[in-house]
Each structure stands twice: as structure tokens, then as C-alpha cells.
Nucleic acid binder design. Structure first.
Length: 497
RNA sequence: GGGGCUGUACGCUAACCUGGCAGACUUCCAGCCUCGGGCGCUGGAUACCCGAGUUCAAAUCUCGGCAGCCCCA
């Protein structure tokens, strides 16, 4: 559990409330780690009190948000020609170990089942840390000729990796609960290459719709996925300035095809290897979304995935309970006709309690409704993004609330764009970077000639690891390592999660 | 990969240094009071992370495990 002893913390707490109740008021930028843990707790997303490192309990409210987010992902996958499947979680060692680099990359963090009941197993079973091997082995008989290609599959499953780094809910886990992994099979290298661009486009659409800011980069050759030819990473930046890999789109070439004997008969009746790609996302995207949009009062749910769009808080006076309740039900009915998810909070608690609670959970709109409003035919509407209240005619509620969903989305987008812009910095030389990048927050770009030696040298000189580069975007500057000017591109560096 | 810190009730915390009845607030339960930004009152429930060691005696000291946080690479 977080330790709350910093002076800032004590100050913000006492300022926010005179009661000793734990108030959610944490400076997200100054104290992101603590903000994140507390916001997910008070915001009803995760219960972190599970005694196994890297595994967390999803609360219903949080899980609903995840489900909404994943349904957007499924919609995009389905629309772009991917078919949803399922492959087993336990993978025999003989299959898991078929591709050397992959085995080397994942062996250290795979959970391995060696015993069942009282018997030890004759062959070890690997719990999937990702499903390349089991899928590639299994689809072999599905692919016989070019007419079977391209084959584009995806599954949404849980997967396990024995992370040794510090774990964090949603961002770094040992048990990933909703791993959406896509695997595609193509006749030619060109087609696989095209699929990479399609995969990046699909993910870009997803992140655009989730209002998660990102840049698309190519990972340097010395830092690619185990068994990959190259990969494209989609990177974001968290409020503490650390970079977060949102997704990786990987071109596997025919390396796995060769290891698994994945071939088809081409037009000349010649056996050819398929070319493959794979790409995945997970609940990490929800963590990123919540992290970038929340404020010092807690979470702010993006309207498109909010488990509850509107919470109605009835304000009772003695004797008015029934009338207020009826009015609340009436408003709820009107809003639900607009496909809004609405909840009435008539729990016997003070309204202040309720307000703080729903704000921490990030419900986009709150409606306050008491005798005063009923008499005037009005409603008080509070929006979570700006914390502003307005009074409207009750009959205008459906129209106004729907409009507010768009307005809130727009505000969040503007805010997050501005935030992201301030966290991507560009420098021309190492000296300039060292002089100005003192807080080491966010991604930094430096001119780079494309040579691995120079990339590694820069990494070492500035003491920040490479994140990736944008291959097709040439810049007019000299490589910050060797000074060459031809073909200079920008390499991004950043501390990562 | 290396280093540091921490673990007391649902939550937050006191006692730990200097071993000797674990205390407050919050929460929860029962009841009263009633709801426009964390009401009040009465009564009650709930805790020393796990294991070993030292000791007459361990929340406190030592060792190990598990879990969490921070810093550096």
C-alpha cells in the first residue's frame, strides 16, 4: 500500500477536507505512481489485494469498462477481416521450443506445468506467454494452397509471463487477462509487409477512438521481438514522463514458417513458406486511457467506454422521497431511450459522499434532482471533465446529455493532445539535450543516421534507452553521433515501463 | 541486473528506537437523526503478513519467505 508521508500529500489532503476521511486528492503529475494505485482503487477498477505479484482482481465496474474497450477492438478486428478463434493455453515443450530465438526470448519468463495431481508430466507444458507457437503448429493443415491465404486470426485470452520487474495493475502484469493477439499468414513478403501497415492502421484507429495519444515508430534492429524480422511499436507517454509501449506490430518474415514447416503450394505447384505477422494489445490500453485522462479528483471515463454515462443523485427532503424517486426514474427512462447507461444512486448517504464517489469513478455526467428542480421542471447537470454545473429544462435532458457526451469527448481530446505535445521533445545535439532535458520526462528525439553503432552510442551518451525511429521521415540535420547528414532520421529515446 | 525502504482492522495510522494489557480516526453492523459537497449522537464488530530463532516474555530484536513501494542500470 502506498505510503502517504510526503509534505505535499499532507497539504493537499487537509486542504481538500477538514474531515479525517480519506479524500482523493493527489497530484497526478508530481506523484503519478501513487495517483495511479489510488485512482484505480477508489475508482472501483481494480482490487490490488491479491497475494500474488502481478495478479489483480477486477471489480465489476472496471471490468465493464474493459469489456466496452475490447468490444471496440473486436469490432475493428472483425471489420478488417480478422477471424476470432481460440487456441489452448498449455503448449507442449516440443512445440514451444521449435523456434530458437523465440524460445530464448520467452523461456525465462514462462510458467511451466510439470505436475498434474500426483503425477509428474512426461512432457512439460508451457503456459502461453503469447501464442505464436501453438497457433503456428496448429494451422499447418489449414494452409495448403494460395487460396487459403491470407489467413488472419485473432483471439482474446489470458496469458502469463513471470515478470521480474516491478509489476503494476494493467501496465505490467504476470497475468494478462484480456490479451488480444492477432496472427496473420501471407503468401509473400510484400503481402506481410502490407499487413503490417494495415495492423498499424487498425491500431491507430483504435487509439484515436480511445483518445490515447501515441507515436508510431520502428524498433531498432537490436531491440526487436524474439524471432521477428522487424517490429513497429506504438508508444505513448504516461503522466510521470515514462514511455509506455501500447502495442507492437511484428513482421515475422518466414522465420517461424521455416521452424514450423508452414508451407503452401504456389501456382507452379512449388512448396513455399508463408510470411507472417502478429500484433497484440491488452488491458494495458485501459490503464493508459485512465492514466492520461484522470485528474486530481480521480478517474475520468471516456464516454464511449464508460460503464455508466449518467448517475442521477436524487436529493431527498423529508416526505418528498417518493416524488423525487419517481422523477429520477422518469429521467432515467428518457435517457435510456438514447442508449445511455444510467444509474440512480438513492443509497442512504449524504449527497457529498455520493458526489465524491462518482467523481472518483469518472462518470462523465451527474444529474442532481430534488424538489426544487421538480417544481421548476429543471435538472442540475454536472460534467466531470470541467467540474461545471448547469441548469436545464428537464425535457431537454436527452438532447443535452447526448451533446455533453460529445463535448466531454472533445474536451478530453484537446487536453490530451496538448499534454502529449508537451511530452515529445526534439533536440539536435547531445549537448543541447543534456542541457534542456533535465527532468528527463517524456520522449526525446535526436537526429540519427541509421547506423546501429551510432544508435547505441547515443543511448550510452545520454543514458536513456532507444524507443524507435520513424523510417520514412527524413530530417535535415546531422546525426548527433557521427555528424553525417545524408539520410538522417529521428531516433526517439525514453525511459520506459 | 544492483541498491534502499516498508508490511498493525475495509482504509489510514499510533505504540517499534528502549521487548511487558495494541490506541485513535474512518469503514462496517444495530438504533436515533435526515440527504443541495464528506452531518450529529449511542452501542457494537474487526488487526500486529507468514515461518523459524533469541527471551520468563516478541507487533517490537535476528534470520528466511511472501507482498508492496522507491532509486539506479
Amino acid at each position: 500500500m502506498p505510503n502517504l508521508k510526503s509534505p505535499n500529500e499532507a497539504l493537499s489532503r487537509s486542504e481538500a477536507s477538514t474531515s479525517t476521511k480519506v479524500t482523493f486528492s493527489i497530484d497526478k503529475i508530481k506523484n503519478f505512481s501513487e495517483w495511479y494505485d489510488r485512482a484505480l482503487d477508489v475508482g472501483d477498477i481494480i482490487d490490488a489485494r491479491y497475494p500474488v505479484k502481478g495478479m489483480y482482481i477486477w471489480r465489476p465496474y472496471g471490468f465493464r469498462a474493459l469489456r466496452e474497450m475490447m468490444s471496440v477492438m473486436r469490432e475493428i478486428m472483425d471489420r478488417t477481416g480478422h477471424k476470432e478463434t481460440y487456441f489452448p493455453m498449455l503448449i507442449p515443450e516440443s512445440i514451444f521450443g521449435k523456434e530458437r530465438d523465440f524460445l530464448k526470448g520467452f523461456k525465462g519468463e514462462a510458467y511451466i506445468v510439470t505436475q498434474a495431481g500426483n503425477d509428474s508430466l512426461t512432457e512439460k507444458l508451457y503456459v502461453r506467454p503469447t501464442s505464436e507457437t501453438v497457433i503456428y503448429e496448429s494451422v499447418k493443415p489449414w494452409i495448403r494452397s494460395e487460396t487459403d491465404l491470407p489467413l488472419k486470426l485473432y483471439q482474446v485470452v489470458n496469458m502469463y509471463r513471470h515478470e521480474t520487474k516491478q509489476t503494476r495493475p494493467m501496465l505490467r502484469l504476470r497475468e494478462v487477462v484480456e490479451f488480444k493477439e492477432a496472427h496473420t499468414f501471407h503468401a509473400t513478403a510484400e503481402e506481410a509487409d502490407r499487413q503490417i501497415r494495415e495492423g498499424v492502421a487498425a491500431y491507430s484507429e483504435f487509439f484515436d477512438r480511445m483518445l490515447i495519444p501515441y507515436i508510431v515508430v520502428r524498433t531498432p534492429s537490436w531491440d526487436t521481438f524474439a524471432g521477428a524480422v522487424y517490429n513497429i511499436d506504438i508508444m505513448s507517454v504516461m503522466p510521470d514522463g515514462k514511455a509506455l509501449e501500447l502495442a507492437s506490430v511484428i513482421n515475422l518474415g518466414d522465420k517461424f514458417a521455416k521452424a514450423f514447416g508452414l508451407t503452401y503450394r504456389n501456382k507452379n505447384n512449388k512448396e513455399s513458406y508463408v510470411h507472417q505477422t502478429c500484433y497484440g494489445i491488452s488491458e494495458r490500453e485501459l490503464g493508459a486511457m485512465l492514466a492520461v485522462h484522470g485528474d486530481n479528483r480521480g478517474l475520468i471515463m471516456l464516454p464511449s467506454i464508460a460503464p455508466i454515462h449518467v448517475v442521477i443523485v436524487p436529493i431527498f427532503k423529508r416526505g418528498s422521497e417518493d416524488a423525487v424517486k419517481r422523477a429520477a426514474e422518469n429521467v432515467k427512462g428518457m435517457l435510456e431511450k438514447q442508449k445511455l447507461r444510467v444509474e440512480i444512486d438513492d443509497k442512504p448517504k449524504g449527497v457529498g459522499d455520493k458526489f465524491y464517489e462518482w467523481e472518483a469513478k469518472g462518470v462523465p455526467v451527474r444529474i442532481e434532482l430534488g424538489l426544487k428542480e421538480i417544481e421548476r421542471g429543471e435538472l442540475v447537470i454536472f460534467r466531470r471533465d470541467t467540474l461545471k454545473k448547469e441548469t436545464i429544462k428537464a425535457k431537454d435532458a436527452p438532447k443535452r446529455v447526448l451533446a455533453l457526451m460529445d463535448e466531454i469527448t472533445k474536451t478530453l481530446k484537446e487536453r490530451v493532445d496538448e499534454y502529449f505535445k508537451s511530452r515529445i521533445l526534439h533536440f539536435l545535439t547531445v549537448g543541447e539535450l543534456k542541457k534542456h532535458y533535465t527532468e528527463r520526462k517524456g520522449l526525446v528525439g535526436l537526429p540519427w543516421c541509421g547506423d546501429e553503432k551510432c544508435g547505441r552510442k547515443l543511448e550510452e551518451e545520454i543514458g536513456i534507452p532507444t524507443v524507435g525511429f520513424v523510417p520514412e521521415k527524413h530530417i535535415d540535420a546531422a546525426c548527433a553521433a557521427c555528424g553525417r547528414r545524408d539520410n538522417t532520421i529521428e531516433m526517439y529515446f525514453g525511459r520506459t515501463y
